[in-house]
Design a protein around this nucleic acid. Sequence first.
DNA 1: CACATCCATGCCCACAGGTTATGGAAGCAG
DNA 2: CTGCTTCCATAACCTGTGGGCATGGATGTG
Lengths: 308, 308
Amino acid sequence: MDVDTRLLRYFLAVAEEGTLTRAAERLFVSQPTLTKQIRQLETLLGARLFTRSRAGMALTEPGRALAARLPALLTAWDQVLRETRRAAGRAARSLRVGFMASAANEATPRIITEFARRRPGWRVEMRQAGWSDPSAGLADGDVDVALLRLPFPGQDALRTAVLFSEPRWVALPEDHPLAVRDVLPFRDLWDEPFVAAPPETGRWRDHWLAAGERDGRPVRIGAVTDQPDDWLSAIANGYGIALAPASAARFYARPGVTYRPVSGVSSSRVGVAWAVADDTDPVVQDFVHACLESARPPQTEAGTGTAG
Amino acid sequence: MDVDTRLLRYFLAVAEEGTLTRAAERLFVSQPTLTKQIRQLETLLGARLFTRSRAGMALTEPGRALAARLPALLTAWDQVLRETRRAAGRAARSLRVGFMASAANEATPRIITEFARRRPGWRVEMRQAGWSDPSAGLADGDVDVALLRLPFPGQDALRTAVLFSEPRWVALPEDHPLAVRDVLPFRDLWDEPFVAAPPETGRWRDHWLAAGERDGRPVRIGAVTDQPDDWLSAIANGYGIALAPASAARFYARPGVTYRPVSGVSSSRVGVAWAVADDTDPVVQDFVHACLESARPPQTEAGTGTAG
DNA sequence: CACATCCATGCCCACAGGTTATGGAAGCAG
DNA sequence: CTGCTTCCATAACCTGTGGGCATGGATGTG
C-alpha cells in the first residue's frame, strides 16, 4: 500500500486545522484539491477518517489513530533524509556550512582558506540561512557546522565556540533626528520603534532588541522582517531602527540607512556551532579549529567589545 | 520533501537485487521505468545513490545510509496502516475474520451465528486468504482473528485454539488406477506425484504433503498451486494427487476429481488464531469462545480422527 | 565475431493532482 | 423571511509524470 508523504501531510493539516478551507490555505493548495486528496486517502485506507459537517472536519476514531502516529513517522523520514544527505556530503568530500547573513563577514574567507589548508581536497558548501532560523540549518541537520551570532534558540543542545565579539551599532534612517549625532547612548533609543526578527527566533530576537538591557522598559516593535533586504527597507522607510553588528555598516550599506556606534549596550558575539555527535568528527573539528585560528576581531574593533 | 513509498520500495529492490533489470522483474515494472524512477529519487535527495556499471547498480555511501534505514521506516508505516484499519473496523463494529479456503467449512455459519448472539450489533467481515498465507492475514495484522488449519508457519508468535480435527482424504483424478479402491493406505501414495502449496508456506505445506509420515521417503512434487481452483485443475489434469480434508469432498467437488478416505495418515486440525495482544480484547475473545462452543466435528467424522 | 547482459534514451499514452468556477447546506444578522 | 457567510462537494479542464515499448550503447563471453 503506497502513499505519498504529501498525502499524509495534507491529512495532518486538516486534522489540526479542523476545516478543509483553513488547511488548504496553510498548505497553499486549493480547497477542492484537499477535498479530493482526503477522500483518496480514505479510500486508500478503506476507512472514514473524518466526519464532515458544515462546521468542518472532525476526526473519527481511525482518524485519531492515524493522526496520533503519523507525526513520528514523518519525523523519522525527515531524519533519514538528512542522514542520507549528510552521507552524500561526506562522500563528495564536502562540508556543509550554514551561516547567518552578516555572521562572520570578513572573517569568513580566512576561515575557508584555513580549512582548505587543513583539508586539501575538501570543499565547503556555504548555505545562507534566513533569520527565521538563527541556527542556520544546524538544528535541522541541514548543515554540518554553522557560523552564527550568539545566543540563539536551541543553542544548549549544540556545541558552540565563540570566535570574536563585535560592538553593536544602530541602523537608522538617514533623516532620523538622532542621525546627526556621532555616538548614541542606548538609553536614548529605548522609546524608538524597532525592526525585529520573527517572534519564533526567541532569545536571538531578544538579543538584537537588547531586551535585557533596557532597565525593564518594554520594547516597541515597528516592523518584523525575515531577510536583510526587508530589514533595510523597513528601516529606510522609517518603520523603526535596529541594532546591528558594526560590520553591517560596510556589508549592508544602503542609501537612506546610516549606522552609528551605540554606547551602553553589550557587544555581539560571533560563534561557530556543531552537533554534539560531531565532537569526534575530524572534518568538523578541523573546521572549528580553522575558525578559532583565523578569526580575528574585525578591523573596526572599537567601543565596548567584550568576549562572553 | 515529499516522497512516495513506492519510490522507496523501488530503491530498496534495486539495492537488494543489484541490477535494474532484476529489480524491475521483481517489481513487475519495466526496466526503463526503474531507470527513470531511481534517477528521480537521486535528484530529489540531491545525492548519487548508485554507481552504474555494466555489471549492475552498486550502492554508494549515501545509498547505503538510505538502504540501512529505509526498511524500518517502511515497516513502521505498515504498522500505522494496520492499526488505522483495525481502528476503522472497531469503529464500524466489525470484526475482521480471515479464513483459509476449506478451513472450518460447515462449522463457519454456526460460529458466526453464535458470535452474533454474543455481540449484537457487530458484524463479521470474512476475508478469504489464498494458500500463500496460511495465517489467513493474521500474521500481517490484516485481520483480527482467523480460522485455519494447524499447523501453519508463524503459529508460535500467535495464540491458537484447536476447534476440531478431521480425517485427511486424498483427491485424485477420476481415472486414476487407485480411484477404484474405497480406502487407500497412505503408503500406497508415497510414490505418487503430489500437488503442493508454494514452498514459502513451510510447515503448512509439509503437513499437507504428510512429509513426516512417509517413513523418510522423499516427496514427489507434480505441481505447485496457490488457489483451490488451480489445485483442482492440476489434479484433474493428472499433474498429481493431494491430501485434503474430508469435507473437501463436499466443498470442492469437481468433474474429473474424486476423493477417497486414506488410512495410515494423521488427521488435520482446524483452529482459531489471534494475536497475543488480543488476549484481553473482549470482542476477539467472544469470537474465540463462539468458535469453541459451536465447533463440532463435521458429520463425516470417520476414520483416524484425533485431536492434537 | 556474434551474442548476451547491462543501463540509457526517445516516444507515446493514460492518469492523477492541480486549478477555477459553481452549487448546496446550514448558521447568523437584519 | 431574506441575504450573507462559511463550510464542503462537484464539474470541467490543464499539465506533469509514471508507465509502457522499442531501441541504442557499452562491455564482457562463447
